Computed example of a mutant assay.
Amino acid sequence: MKHIFLVFIAVLQLFGATVKSPIIGLNEDLSEVSIKVDNIDVGVSGFVVHEIVKDKRSILANAVVKSFDPVSKIAKISVSEFNSLSSSALPNGKWSIKLGDEVVLAFGYTRGILIAPNEEIYHRITKNSSLQWVHPDLFATMLSFNGHPTPLRSDFLQMSIDNSVGLVFVFLQNKVYTIDAKSFKILAITDAALEQKEAKLPFYTRVQEINAAWWGEGSSRLKEYEPHYYELMIKANSDNKELYDIVKAGGKELQDLLEEFEIKG
């Protein structure tokens, strides 16, 4: 358990405070901008902020770290439409991203949710952490409203937006995966040697039953714990060699997932 506590401490140290930096470069179609920062991980998400007038700001776009050069300290940031606060009652501006606008990263990284197979593992991982844990009951209630007894990537995104959750932690086969809740990029993989006696599906929650929609993606009952969460991670991390090696060594039930990686061999 010592290693698990250390990773939470590291997460708080690296991401406990938001990272803010002005844009120093941008491409023609405004799909990518550059900032200078001491250190940042690929996959960290945030947004681009534009100052309309003094002390009046507006969020213009979502932002995700695409690459980071530790020598030049330049991070390339992929930007996309920001629609988390879409409402016909809110005013719409016609501002565009420009040099000097601020990129805010790691927003909400002091709040996390843990996906665990049972109550014992959930409490052993979370009990000594200073992270602000959002209880999985809240996520399960949201899934029931959506009719998704099998959680989708879009459900995690909605949970992140609705509850200002920056990090998702997933326990799988004696490891804890630290994931950006919006980009779903893996930020860290930590050993967690905990005996798994049982698995409650789709994850540990005190919610007795998650309602299912009549049809559509996510409406089926989850039959196996590990394959589903590995598949969700692979879709957003298909070039992650460490994840590839873990899945490759994970048993026969995971071998079909190897085809979803960009890495071969």
Rank of each mutant, 00 (worst) to 15 (best):
N128C: 08
Q196M: 10
F261Q: 03
K94H: 11
D162W: 09
E32G: 00
D41I: 05
V33F: 01
P117M: 03
G250H: 02
V7S: 12
Y229R: 00
I125S: 08
L152K: 09
K20S: 08
A181K: 14
E209K: 14
V71G: 07
W214R: 13
N92T: 14
D38G: 15
G16K: 08
D55P: 10
D162E: 09
N211E: 12
I35G: 05
V207P: 15
T205H: 01
Q255C: 05
S129R: 00
T126E: 15
I186G: 03
F171D: 03
Q13I: 05
L85W: 08
Q132S: 01
D38A: 11
V104G: 10
D245C: 04
V42P: 00
S78M: 14
E260I: 02
S130A: 12
N118V: 08
K241R: 12
A249K: 13
G25T: 05
P91M: 04
N237Q: 06
G265C: 10
K73N: 07
G43H: 01
K20E: 15
D256H: 09
M233T: 07
V79S: 02
F47D: 11
S21N: 01
S72M: 00
L222G: 07
R57T: 08
N83P: 00
F47P: 14
L6V: 09
T110W: 05
N163K: 14
E28N: 12
M142N: 11
A212C: 08
K175C: 09
E195H: 06
E209Q: 13
G250N: 04
V33A: 00
E259T: 11
G250Q: 06
S88T: 10
K54G: 04
V37H: 14
Q173L: 09
D38Q: 12
N146G: 00
K235Q: 13
Q208L: 15
P70V: 07
L114D: 05
S78D: 14
I186P: 01
N39S: 13
N240F: 02
L85E: 13
I23S: 04
E231T: 04
G112N: 10
K66C: 02
R153E: 10
I77F: 07
A181G: 10
K248N: 13
N92A: 10
A75N: 03
I23L: 03
L257Y: 06
Q132T: 03
K185D: 05
I125Y: 01
N146W: 08
S96G: 03
V207G: 12
A193E: 11
D245E: 12
E217H: 05
G166F: 04
L131S: 03
N83Y: 01
F5L: 14
D41N: 07
F8E: 15
V103R: 00
L85D: 15
M1V: 06
A75H: 00
F5K: 13
Y204F: 13
Y229D: 01
K2M: 11
K94F: 06
I35K: 03
T126I: 11
G25I: 06
F261H: 00
D245T: 10
N62H: 12
I4Q: 09
Y204E: 12
E217A: 10
